[in-house]
Design a protein around this nucleic acid. Sequence first.
DNA 1: ATGGCTTCATAGTGAAGA
Length: 255
Amino acid sequence: MKLVTWNVNSLNVRLPHVEDWLKAHQPEALCLQEIKMEDARFPREAIESLGYHVVFDGQKTYNGVAIIAKSRPEDVARGIAGFADEQRRVIAATVNGVRVVCVYVPNGQSLDSDKYQYKLAWLKALTGWLGGELKLYPDLALLGDYNIAPEDRDVHDPKAWEGQVLVSEPERAAFRGLQALGLADSFRLFDQPEKSFTWWDYRMNGFKRNLGLRIDHVMLSASLVARCQASSIDIEPRKLERPSDHTPAFAVVAD
DNA sequence: ATGGCTTCATAGTGAAGA
């Protein structure tokens, strides 16, 4: 089964790309971030007409997450238990026996911003919550836009980015905190091309020059690591007209 | 060069993203 994450930067704008990608790749689960719409506006019929189920948690203008799945999502949960948050950034559901947790981690803006403190607090709450979830659901996948490049090799120009938001040491420590729970970065279970990224700035011809970051991840619990057959990034959607600035990242896990 | 591009909410520009 293919488990995928994709920050679509507005599902209104990107729906045709999502539809085409679902038809071509037939994933078991596709986690979306930044759908940027209220629930009433979600294109449920368009997704369901392709033979998929969908659960979502949206809001006007910003954020918003969804899980599109071939199997009916069960035990749907929204948000981080015990962490009050107006921003719609987490939805979880059990899909074909796998606990799929879809997250849109806060960006943080800059190290001196209140949003950076919110990001670190949010990650701490996420990690605490997931510790319990992993005990309840040993087969767990954490997919999303983490807004963290875990290592320098995930950054096109580590020198230029040194100490910036998305690569700062406290953020990377938070990523290692997730690893300490027993979650593994599926991408690094396999040999990968150098300069593999999931996001490129719209400005400065970032994609054409491959000036990117790897900030979208699929992390897997130990039992899913044992079943993981592949993990990769599909850069093709980034080449389309009016693309999202992110592209899909996925893992393939044996049924 | 603190810019560059895209989205949304708005009907001018401004916020936010990464």
